Amino acid sequence: MGDQKRRAGIYLIGLMISVSVAGCGTDQIHTEQAAQVPKQLSGKIVSEVSEVSPSAPAGDDKEITAVETRRFYSGPPHHSPPPVGNKIAYLTFDDGPSNSTRKILHILKTNGVTATFFVIGTETSEGKSLYKEIAAEGHALGNHTYSHDYNRIYKSPEAFIKDASRLDRLLEETVGFRPEILRFPGGSNNQVSRKSGGRGVMSKVTAKVKEQGYQYFDWNVSSTDAAAPVQDKDMIIDSVLSASKGKKRIIVLMHDNTYKTTTLEALPVVIRKLKAAGFRFDKLQKSSFTFQFLEP
């Protein structure tokens, strides 16, 4: 009996020593792993673990939590690179509203596309209805001056602002807001303006426009629908597609004009082919990508 008690005591002592050694080993592993956690992870323990391991039992100590954070951490979200192939097309239509406006709106709606209309001034009830329809369907309204009269608007920076402000007031009365975006008739580098305002007038006008809080937009893709009274449909399509190659952001110049019927014919094809080329569509805002021929 004495030998049995002695053997049992020796076995019990050995078992206690094994448990103690195992516990020390586990503590040492946790301590070493926690020491390897990058410093930048501190302060993000709870929120990140709730995403990484939502099934973890409540009450886990911070060292274990930190190890899990380190294991699944992939960098802060705001440092993530932009999606590959993120191409945006901004379709823009100048000089409306016209008898073509509703047809353009129908094509855009059918294809699920938003666009930007740089409009001029009209006080008719039909014109005002079209301003409202453009805005109601989620498209952007931009200022293209009230008169679109080169001789009037390009006499001086003050003359330009006076004309543009007249359109602003009309749009505010009609749709409830003044546009922050603008396109110069003829573009910011047009040469026709020299006849009324002199050689350097556009530099002065662009500076004045920026001073007044507008963002102005030229274009880096032309549909060429203004190159002829009625441009060939296939020429419009080919011009847009060829000028879009190699670009991630495109601002496409088209026209909202009663007589430009081939623009209407080409538009659905242009949209379909740009989509196939990986473009999505958006409307211009003050903060959007811009392309300017002449910077103030």
Rank of each mutant, 00 (worst) to 15 (best):
1 M>D: 08
12 L>C: 14
14 G>A: 15
14 G>D: 07
18 S>E: 10
18 S>L: 09
22 A>K: 00
24 C>W: 12
26 T>S: 12
27 D>K: 03
31 T>S: 14
32 E>L: 14
34 A>H: 13
39 K>E: 14
42 S>Y: 10
43 G>R: 08
44 K>S: 10
44 K>D: 04
45 I>F: 14
49 V>C: 15
50 S>V: 04
51 E>G: 12
56 A>S: 03
63 E>N: 10
67 V>Q: 15
69 T>Y: 07
70 R>G: 04
71 R>G: 15
73 Y>G: 02
77 P>S: 08
83 P>G: 01
84 V>Y: 13
85 G>N: 06
86 N>Y: 14
89 A>V: 10
89 A>P: 02
90 Y>F: 14
94 D>L: 01
100 S>F: 00
100 S>L: 02
102 R>E: 15
102 R>W: 00
110 T>S: 12
114 T>Y: 06
116 T>G: 11
123 E>Q: 11
126 E>V: 08
128 K>N: 01
128 K>M: 11
129 S>L: 13
134 I>S: 07
136 A>L: 10
137 E>H: 07
138 G>M: 01
138 G>I: 07
144 H>C: 03
144 H>E: 08
147 S>Y: 03
156 S>F: 05
157 P>V: 14
158 E>A: 08
163 D>R: 02
164 A>L: 09
164 A>H: 00
165 S>R: 12
167 L>Q: 08
168 D>H: 06
168 D>G: 02
169 R>P: 00
169 R>W: 13
172 E>C: 04
174 T>N: 12
174 T>L: 05
176 G>W: 00
176 G>R: 08
185 P>E: 11
189 N>W: 06
189 N>S: 15
191 Q>A: 06
194 R>K: 05
194 R>P: 02
195 K>L: 08
196 S>M: 09
197 G>Y: 03
197 G>I: 12
197 G>W: 13
202 M>F: 04
206 T>E: 03
210 K>L: 14
219 W>A: 11
223 S>E: 07
228 A>F: 06
232 D>H: 08
233 K>H: 06
234 D>N: 15
235 M>L: 08
237 I>M: 01
241 L>D: 07
245 K>I: 09
250 I>D: 03
259 Y>S: 03
263 T>K: 04
266 A>I: 06
271 I>W: 00
276 A>I: 05
276 A>K: 15
282 D>Y: 05
294 L>Q: 01
294 L>T: 07
295 E>N: 09
295 E>V: 14
